[in-house]
């Protein structure tokens, strides 16, 4: 009898630990997007990857509150900010454009909603949001391609307020993010 009790306790603890570790895994969040494999782009002339987890964002929130309480509110609700940015050259141009189209295709076929799309001769930019059942934004993706510049893939996971997210982009100079408020909602 005692052995069975210990076994059940151990099993319950193991299950609780598993659930806890899964809840900490941001890749399981509905607002997270796997952009796929960037291995073939690693030899680009310029590559930047940024990954700010919840612990870093919370820490930054606590220090930002003095200068701008709004920034604190934005940062506190976020679980992940990540960006992959590549300098475009003749060798990777087609690959990067294909990647932008792949992400567009992937998100368009799911519950993500594209709210901004801009296209010109030199530039393509898309903004997507994911909403939960309470109509709150829990994920944001920005893809941009500037023919004579860089291609960027940005994913923000957490509670997002579009009205103030542009402030975050401006504050941290995150590519494309600071332009969201300046682009009209809806496809163009």
């Amino acid at each position: 009898m005692k052995t069975i009790k210990y076994l059940i306790t151990a099993l319950v603890l193991t299950l609780v630990m598993q659930l806890h570790s899964q809840s900490d895994d941001v890749t399981k969040e509905p607002g997270y997007v796997d952009f796929g494999d960037f291995t073939s782009l690693e030899k680009s002339a310029g590559v930047t990857e940024v990954e700010l987890g919840q612990d870093v964002l919370s820490a930054l929130a606590s220090i930002s509150s003095d200068e701008d309480p709004n920034i604190m509110a934005i940062l506190n609700g976020l679980k992940l900010v990540r960006a992959n940015v590549y300098e475009i050259d003749d060798k990777n141009r087609d690959q990067l454009m294909q990647k932008v189209n792949e992400v567009d295709s992937k998100l368009s076929n799911t519950s993500w909603k594209r709210i901004v799309r801009t296209r010109s001769e030199d530039e393509t930019a898309n903004v997507y949001i994911k909403m939960n059942s309470n109509k709150k934004i829990i994920g944001l993706v920005v893809t941009s391609f500037e023919n004579s510049g860089e291609a960027a893939f940005v994913n923000i996971v957490g509670q997002i307020d579009l009205a103030t997210i542009g402030k975050l982009g401006k504050k941290f100079d995150i590519p494309s993010l600071d332009d969201i408020n300046r682009k009209d909602s809806g496809e163009k």
Binding site: G46, V50, L60, I63, V85, E87, K171, F172, D173, P175
Partner: peptide, 20 residues
């Protein structure tokens, strides 16, 4: 380092994309 980053943000507008 929170404060180090805070000052960098405030004074230099720490650019995450500084290498772009």
């Amino acid at each position: 380092l929170q404060k180090v980053i805070s000052y960098a943000l405030k004074e230099k507008k720490f650019k995450i994309n500084s290498e772009l």
